[in-house]
Nucleic acid binder design. Structure first.
Lengths: 343, 343
DNA sequence: ATATGTTAATTTATCGACTATATCAAGTTG
DNA sequence: CAACTTGATATAGTCGATAAATTAACATAT
């Protein structure tokens, strides 16, 4: 018996003196051949080092890949740095792994789904991709799509009620109409820059999570009759220490100095707290700071951050389950106001 | 002109009244047909909504996938939680993205490479997979393999000199022969449990990074003539807050109380510092703690952690580059003793 | 006029599998 | 003994593409 390093179904069949179909059936359709023959074939394959039908060819033929593309909002680099995104991924992976489905990472900065579309069964999109043309493609792509934290009107999706949640956390941080408020927004603008958002009225109708959260903040502000100045809202392009510190510093040094900072992520809030402490400010006496997400580090920080806890892992698991079952459901997951000493 | 939702090269060719090969050439080999024809074909394809050859079929035929499997040591879940692993991934992704190569995540707990092997051009393995049968397969798999932080004697690899680095950091933490030392090891044992390593002599010849680091520690201990008791070495199965805290607590409560803790990762060291502070111990007066990795959070902690800084992102980038160039090189990357106030 | 070369397009075999249909042998039935 | 099942295997077409070989048309050289 020759020992090739690369068997194919055909060459194995020839070696064993049976037809291709018989070998194929041995692997895929046990009912199509006698038990004894099937077993002897499988044993021989194992012996010779043929580990079963080539998956690429199989997938081409069957149109099923057992691969899901996880579309990230930004570059892959950013994704794995963000604890919220990471735990989301953890949730997705834990479910897909069980079903033997593999995960292909796909950057939301890409121009087109083309490079992966022919390899995957569909897409799970975590947040609106930065590249708008991807969003357009996702609307029409002939594969299953589950979106998370945004919606494209055709598909299954997983969301939390951002507006309500941020309303609640803002409500907690705000005390009266004399509060001086700064808002550190995460991706309020499409532009990939750190800057102030002078015309935030444009955001009022927006559907991104940043816009939803901003509306929540504004509702709380309005209820307490607190004005928000034109230049007190920042756009931070990604939830990173570096950008957040710069924005926080800017906010803390603007006059009149804010005594409340509403931050759209915990990483931003943590950076803001660090900057505030560096300036000798007391939290929450001099300034109240609240976040969003509920990451572990925020609970270990002193003072503990007041924030909205959302279970990202659960979110990931739910998204993966929706993908597997192909239910076209729009799911809303729970969140929780998590009280700390920061605001 | 009919507008199908799913064109194939063949159907497009028929529609345009040319042969398959001509359409294929229009996309892949511009020199094989006249410019005018090529342009008219591409324009027509665009018009009709055919976006180019199906990648899965193309890959089957060409044997090239533009997909690399990133083999993680553990489950995917764990991977994205670990900052060191994350920045490694960041490095890999940043290089591969440039070359249009996609990343498939693959769990090191899987039993076999089979489910992905036929879809990828090769493997980048970050750390020795927990499942030993994977390691065996990697030795013989007929695809390109780059390993990181371990070696399988056939392939390109990226490493740091763990033994020398841990020797240096231990040397810094140890003062004299009366030091009471505890070692919090990361994956010293294959078993996935938190426990003491009573027989660490078994580790002496091991090639895992944990074993290498342990040898470094031991060299420093020997030089100062410091004995290490049988029950003062812990095996922590993964670099997580939860496991690390438990082990740290155990170590800190064992008598005589250690005044030096050598930790094989920063996350472990941070957890140990938190536990020490909780017990009212002063760092470094009562206990000196050192880590390994050099993650950001360790630099923000008070007191700042003394550790070995290794540039994981660079490591990832190097691994990706080795993969792309197919050089069979064994690369060693630099590290740096990073001094804090903790040890 | 014959041989040689170039270019552009088509034909055909192939990648590695799946599956509908056809074939065949053995056993049943009327 | 023809007709009909039944159970198993073999054949050929297909998935969607690539690439080697081939043909046809035309240009240049001897």
């Amino acid at each position: 018996m020759s020992k090739k390093n690369h068997w194919t179904l055909k060459s194995i069949a020839k070696e064993l003196g049976v037809s291709n179909a018989t070998v194929s059936n041995a692997f895929n359709r046990p009912d199509q051949l006698s038990k004894s023959r099937r077993e002897s074939i499988l044993a021989a394959c194992n012996e010779l080092g043929y580990f079963g039908p080539n998956k690429a060819a199989q997938s081409l033929r069957r149109g099923k890949f057992n691969i899901v593309a996880l579309v990230l909002p930004d570059s892959i680099e950013y994704m794995v740095s963000d604890p919220v995104a990471s735990s989301f991924m953890r949730g997705v992976a834990s479910i897909l792994e069980k079903d033997g489905i593999n995960l292909l990472l796909f950057s939301g900065n890409s121009d087109s789904l083309n490079s992966v579309i022919d390899f995957v069964d569909g897409f799970i999109c975590y947040g609106r991709p930065r590249n708008q043309s991807l969003v357009e493609q996702l609307k029409t792509v002939p594969k299953h799509v589950v979106t998370v934290d945004f919606d494209i009107d055709r598909n299954a999706s997983v969301n939390i009620n951002n507006e309500q949640a941020s309303y609640e956390v803002a409500k907690h941080a705000l005390h009266n109409k004399h509060d001086q408020v700064a808002i550190l927004g995460l991706r309020l603008l499409d532009e990939n820059v750190l800057c102030r958002v002078y015309d935030h009225h444009e955001c009022e109708a927006g559907q991104s999570i940043a816009h939803q959260r901003l509306r929540g903040y504004q509702k709380a502000l309005t209820e307490l009759d607190i004005p928000i100045a034109e230049d007190r809202i920042w756009n931070i392009p990604e939830s990173s220490e570096r950008f957040a510190s710069i924005a926080a510093k800017e906010a803390l040094c603007s006059l009149p100095r804010p005594n409340v900072m509403l931050c759209m992520s915990d990483l931003i809030a943590l950076a803001a707290m660090r900057e505030a402490l560096k300036l000798g400010l007391k939290i929450p006496e001099d300034i109240r700071i609240v976040g969003f997400d509920g990451i572990d580090e925020a609970q270990r920080f002193v003072p503990k951050l007041t924030t909205i806890h959302q279970n990202s892992e659960e979110k990931g698991a739910l998204a993966a389950n929706l993908f597997i079952t192909k239910e076209e459901q729009k799911a809303l997951i729970n969140y929780e106001l998590q009280l700390g000493q920061s605001g």
